[in-house]
Computed example of a mutant assay.
Amino acid sequence: MDTFWSFITERYPDILKALQEHLVLSFSSVLLGTMIAVPLGILLVYNRIKWINNIVFFIANLFQTVPSLALLAILIPLLGIGMKPAILALFLYSLMPILRNTYDGFNSVDKGVLDSAKGMGYSTAQSILRIQLPLSLPYIMSGIRITTVYIISWATLASLIGAGGLGQLIVSGLGVNKSEMIFTGGIGAILLALAADGLLGLLEGWLSRRYHQNPGRDAAI
């Protein structure tokens, strides 16, 4: 234990740098995944050509089946090494959970509520923003939270292609047989995942309260 604390004290600038790189990798990927998957999931709900939905879900699910190291290796000839291929790979992994939860969340909204909103003169956009989005928020946030935890874990492999992060401590520790480096990288990733999940839970609660106070939604319901 003394060796561990000595390592933390002596190498904290390197640890902070690795943590910063891990944050950039993880949250850039999740942010990109959310920006793409949520609107895409909404579009699929309103898409009338169902075979298109099947193709989109098949492609998103296909990325989930590719082993992490294999996907990183595939991207190296295209983007080289470093942050870019790592973020792209993690982004591809983030799509399916968020896409599926968004799609299921919007489909779970009672059709009677939507018919009532339509009868009150709500446009499709108003129904989405004032009714479906607030009611499906728990589904969407659940997908984002699960994805974030997974991505933080998977991001440790990004160090193998020179992207840095907490995984670099683990790989370096394995290389020089220093358990304190391995322990620091592993515990850091675990704590980061728990903190991210907690913060997203708080964000979900704040958004739920905000939407609950929306008079447009209450009137529609």
Score class of each variant (00 low, 15 high):
Thr3Val: 08
Phe7His: 07
Glu10Asn: 14
Tyr12Ile: 02
Asp14His: 12
Leu23Val: 14
Val24Asn: 00
Val24Glu: 02
Ser28Ala: 11
Leu31Arg: 01
Thr34Gly: 07
Met35Trp: 07
Ile36Gly: 06
Pro39Met: 04
Pro39Cys: 04
Leu43Ser: 08
Tyr46Pro: 06
Ile55Leu: 03
Val56Ser: 01
Phe58Lys: 06
Ile59Trp: 06
Ala60Arg: 11
Phe63Asp: 07
Val66Lys: 05
Ser68Arg: 05
Leu69Met: 07
Leu72Ala: 10
Met83Ile: 15
Met83Cys: 08
Lys84Val: 15
Leu88Lys: 03
Phe91Met: 08
Leu92Tyr: 04
Tyr93His: 12
Thr102Cys: 06
Tyr103Trp: 10
Gly105Ile: 12
Val113Thr: 12
Asp115Tyr: 13
Ala117Pro: 10
Gly121Trp: 03
Tyr122Val: 09
Ala125Trp: 11
Gln126Ala: 15
Ser127His: 03
Leu135Asn: 02
Ser136Lys: 13
Ser136Tyr: 08
Pro138Leu: 05
Ile140Phe: 00
Ser142Gln: 04
Gly143Arg: 13
Gly143Asn: 15
Ile146Gln: 04
Thr147Met: 04
Ile152Gly: 04
Leu160Met: 12
Leu160Gly: 14
Ala163Gln: 01
Leu166Asn: 08
Ser172Trp: 07
Asn177Leu: 07
Ile182Tyr: 09
Phe183Ser: 08
Phe183Tyr: 10
Thr184Arg: 09
Gly186Phe: 01
Gly188Glu: 02
Ile190Arg: 01
Ile190His: 01
Ala196Val: 03
Ala196Tyr: 06
Gly198Ser: 15
Gly201Cys: 01
Leu207Thr: 13
Arg210Cys: 03
His212Asp: 11
Gln213Ala: 10
Pro215Glu: 12
Gly216Ala: 07
Ala219Lys: 11
